[in-house]
Design a protein around this nucleic acid. Structure first.
Length: 887
DNA sequence: TTGCTCACG
DNA sequence: ACGTACGTGAGCAAG
């Protein structure tokens, strides 16, 4: 069937402008909105494959709507000139793409789209309308879908009649009634005072239309009735204003809207003028790329040769083994401890060798396994950490990792969200590598392909890796990251794998018993809650819980989420005085979390063969340089509340009579801040090893140590947290439940007392604006492209990130250094103790009794000398028969 | 798959 | 136009 895409040009460009960071070409032309628009357009073309496209624009300032209502769209901010200049550019771009656009004085883009969609529907075409304006939902029908933009313009959410029904409980035509009642501040449409979306929907569900509501106000009561009677005319007017006019005179035919694909000779010069290099690349209009891509996005791939290793070709490989430059183990499954190895590729400049897992495990492949296990054979490849683990569980050793492409890519840009070989190949403009999803299918569709397809895919990866390595080496050097990469992250990668293979023992019976205790309490709470509510419902459903609390029990609504009432702990705390049910719900939540996540979740992760849990530390996820932990996450085991803290009792030594030893850094982030800000007061406090929150309270409130009460210390502690996070008065006010003004006052007092910190915060933001990135003490780098955004939120977020990342990231650098040093020192002393876990500022070991004394000294000493700062680092150690007791 | 909630540093 | 403290992962409900 023919498919027509109708785009509200004004709406999309407007949104793109605010969603995208500023961008201009070398002649100073602002291009961010055009860029966002073009990106979306190309994505739509690729995904929807339309036969027809038209883009509608608003023309002129005054429309027929102003005739009935002069204030229509009154009170709007003037459009910034940076945006205005991008409208003609967009039209020019559409011309160069051969895409039809249209505007009609006196009408808005809405009306044009309404008219064309109606005509198209009548002509039997399928229509997709793309806009950011919810009003448009009124034109939805079986044939016409409306895609609303979300999160700026990066995503769209398609609405058909069904989706509108689900979201609002209305038919599309009723959208105008909704608007009539609630109005629209952005268009200065008044609506009825006191009626928002919630009430409007309730009324429409009862009466069906604005007219019907107004005719039957006698069935209503109270303030709402008064408002409806008094503002009846406003409601009628608002409904008229919101109604899309579907009979606009339009001098374009469907034939004008036919889309025939991009023509390089027309589109490319325009894209070059705008300097949209990435789009030119994507469309393969430029030259120099070895793979050619057609305008519809399909890619023609280069051929690769690959030698499948079997009994006859093995000798050929064995001869080449010393010359292998890159390797890659393909495995399937998220958890590398349970991943299924699909095959191995070993590449030289001349040749790619594919080794199936079956062959790798066979007797004949012994030389390959020996090569993998030999640390004297240095290896480069992609995600060697995962390879190590996947091979380990099928009893193949791995050693000698020297350059991990994934890890290098992470250091070069930790926030790059496509650190796959395929993504990196595209980023560096190498011959393209199809994505794994394309080759294997994703989700339920995943399938291991035939050997030829698999080996060819892996050979392409091999080729890309060969090319990537020298490029990365050069960039690492340029960024002064050689030490960080070769002396910290690469060695750490092997240490993490060792810790993960070791795992930590879990007392299954004790855990199950805890689960039974939680369950008994949960059952009691459930009974009590259902009694108080007067009905049984799914307590785990925020939606149902919201209905019980706010509709049935009519508790005051404190906060809303996108989809309904918020019922989070903060809200429940506020509701506690109103109804005793609330306290029980809070307790239920706490215990339900413990049972499902920490008892049942953990039980599932215990490996039957080892009786341990083997977490997987991901070294390439966190933007700040921290590790993350999965399957299970052992970095968020409860500690703050006693009930949850008990979970730690089940983490035990794996050998009889051994001890669990835990050591954590004291105030590492504030110590790092004292160092990098060079704030004398803060440094002084740590040199004397003072209680930092008390010291902060003294300076902020201008009192002596004796005068600091618990409340002052608590506030000071919150301020210290805030400082580390990149403080905002709003954030602090939320945390301390004080007004924004009071929070701002606190912050000002803090900065008066710690002027070095103020200077640091100012300078780091300036640095980020100048360089586009911030760094840690070890030159770990994080780019902040939104630091110069005109959008306040985006910019503010980037500014707070600029303040926080060097602090959090340097702390991460330090504990990573400590881990590498600990590993080395334990080897040197020939200790049997084992490092098991890292929890951001804490290291956990299991220690035989005869080494306890040694480790009690060695661990904190090593941690404290990991990096020399202008203030001492302090680590506190403790041990016990399980993790709980090591406190 | 997305959104909510909540566990940790 | 839009909503916030920084950084994560997991379980559950519901689309």
């Amino acid at each position: 069937m023919e498919k027509l895409i109708l785009i509200d040009g004004n709406s999309i460009i407007y949104r793109a402008f605010f969603a995208m960071p500023p961008l201009n070409n070398s002649s100073g032309l602002h291009t961010n909105a055009v860029y966002g628009f073009t990106n979306m357009l190309l994505r739509l073309i690729q995904d929807e494959k339309p036969s027809h496209i038209m883009v509608a624009f608003d023309a002129g300032k005054v429309t027929f709507r102003h005739e009935g209502y002069e204030d229509y769209k009154g009170g709007r901010e003037k459009t910034p000139s940076e945006l205005t200049e991008q409208f003609p550019l967009t039209r020019e771009l559409l011309d160069s793409f051969g895409i039809c656009w249209f505007e009609q004085p006196g009408y808005e883009a809405d009306d044009i789209i309404g008219t064309v969609s109606k005509q198209a529907e009548e002509a039997g075409k399928e229509v997709l309308v793309v806009t950011g304006d919810k009003d448009m939902l009124q034109v939805v029908s079986d044939k016409v879908k409306v895609a609303l933009t979300r999160k700026g313009i990066s995503e769209v959410e398609p609405y058909g009649p069904q989706e509108i029904k689900e979201r609002y409980g209305l038919i599309p035509e009723q959208i105008i009634d909704l608007k009539g009642l609630m109005g629209d501040a952005s268009d200065n449409i008044p609506g009825v005072p006191g009626i928002g979306e919630k009430t409007a929907l309730k009324l429409l569900h009862q009466f069906g239309s604005v007219e019907e509501v107004l005719a039957r106000t006698d069935e209503l009561k109270g303030k709402m009735k008064e408002n409806l009677v008094q503002h009846a005319e406003d409601a009628r007017l608002s409904k008229r204003l919101a109604t899309i006019h579907r009979e606009v005179p339009i001098d374009r035919s469907f034939d004008d809207m036919i889309f025939r694909g991009l023509k390089e000779e027309k589109a490319a010069p325009m894209l070059r003028k705008l300097e949209f290099k990435s789009l030119l690349e994507r469309l393969a209009f430029g030259e120099g790329t070895e793979a050619s891509e057609a305008a519809d996005g399909s890619v023609e791939l280069e051929e690769v040769d690959v030698t499948v290793v079997d009994d006859t070709t093995l000798t050929e490989l064995v001869k080449q083994l010393p010359k292998i430059e890159v390797m890659y183990v393909e495995s399937h499954g998220d958890n590398p401890h349970q991943a299924e190895v699909m095959g191995l590729i070993l590449s030289t400049e001349e040749q790619h060798f594919f080794v199936s897992n079956e062959f790798l495990l066979s007797e004949a492949a012994k030389p390959i396994r020996e090569w993998l296990a030999d640390p004297q054979h240095p290896k480069a490849g992609y995600d060697l950490h995962r390879a190590d683990l996947a091979l380990y569980w099928q009893e193949i050793s791995f050693a000698g990792a020297e350059h991990d492409i994934q890890l290098a890519a992470y250091l070069l840009d930790p926030t790059d969200n496509n650190q796959t070989i395929s993504g990196l190949a595209a980023k560096y403009k190498l011959p393209s590598v199809p994505s794994d999803d394309e080759v294997y299918g994703k989700g339920a569709k995943f399938k291991i392909p035939d050997q030829e397809t698999l080996s060819r895919h892996l050979a392409r990866k091999g080729l890309a890796m060969l090319r990537l390595i020298p490029l990365q080496k050069e960039e690492l050097k340029k960024n002064e990251m050689n030490r960080l990469f070769y002396e910290l992250e690469m060695p750490l990668s092997r240490i993490l794998a060792d810790m993960e293979k070791q795992g930590i023992a879990v007392n299954r019976e004790a855990l199950a018993e805890l689960g039974r205790e939680f369950e008994a309490q949960i059952e009691k709470l459930e009974t009590r809650i259902y009694e108080l509510a007067g009905l049984e419902f799914n307590l785990n459903s925020p939606k149902q819980l919201g209905e019980v609390l706010f509709d049935k029990l009519e508790l005051p609504v404190v906060k809303k989420t996108k989809t309904g009432y918020s019922t989070d702990a903060e809200v429940l705390d506020k509701l506690a005085p109103y109804h005793e049910i609330v306290q029980f719900i809070l307790e239920y939540r706490q215990l339900a979390k413990l049972k499902s996540t920490y008892v049942e979740g953990l039980l599932k992760e215990i490996r039957p063969d080892t009786g341990k849990v083997h977490t997987y530390y991901r070294q390439t996820i966190a933007a700040t340089g921290r590790l993350s932990s999965q399957f299970p996450n052992l970095q968020n085991i409860p500690i703050r509340l006693e009930e949850g803290r008990k979970i730690r009792q089940v983490f035990v030594p794996s050998e009889e009579g051994w001890h669990i030893l835990a050591a954590d850094y004291s105030q590492i982030e504030l110590r790092v801040l004292a160092h990098i800000s060079d704030d004398k007061g803060l440094q002084e406090a740590f040199l004397h090893d003072m209680d930092i929150h008390t010291k902060t309270a003294m300076d902020v409130f201008g009192v002596t140590q004796d005068q600091v009460d618990a409340n002052m210390r608590r506030s000071a502690k919150a301020v210290n947290f805030g400082i580390v996070y990149g403080i905002s008065d709003y954030g602090l006010s939320q945390n301390l439940h004080i007004t924004r003004k009071e929070a701002a006052h606190f912050i000002e007092q803090y900065f008066e007392a710690f002027q070095g910190v103020r200077r640091y915060m100012d300078e780091i933001v300036q640095e980020a604006k100048r360089d586009g990135y911030v760094t840690t003490l070890l030159e770990r780098r994080r780019y902040l492209p939104e630091i110069n955004a005109s959008n306040f939120n985006l910019r503010s977020f980037a500014e707070r990130t600029a303040m926080n990342t060097p602090i959090q990231g340097t702390a991460a650098d330090i504990i990573k250094l400590a881990m590498v040093m600990m590993d080395e020192v334990m080897r040197k002393h020939g200790l049997k103790s084992r490092m098991l876990l890292q929890v951001h500022d804490e290291l956990v070991f299991e220690v035989p009794p005869e080494e306890l004394e040694t480790m009690n000294k060695l661990v904190p000493e090593t941690m404290e000398k990991a990096l020399k700062l202008s203030v001492p680092l302090k680590a506190e150690v403790s041990s016990g028969i399980n993790w709980y007791e090591a406190k």
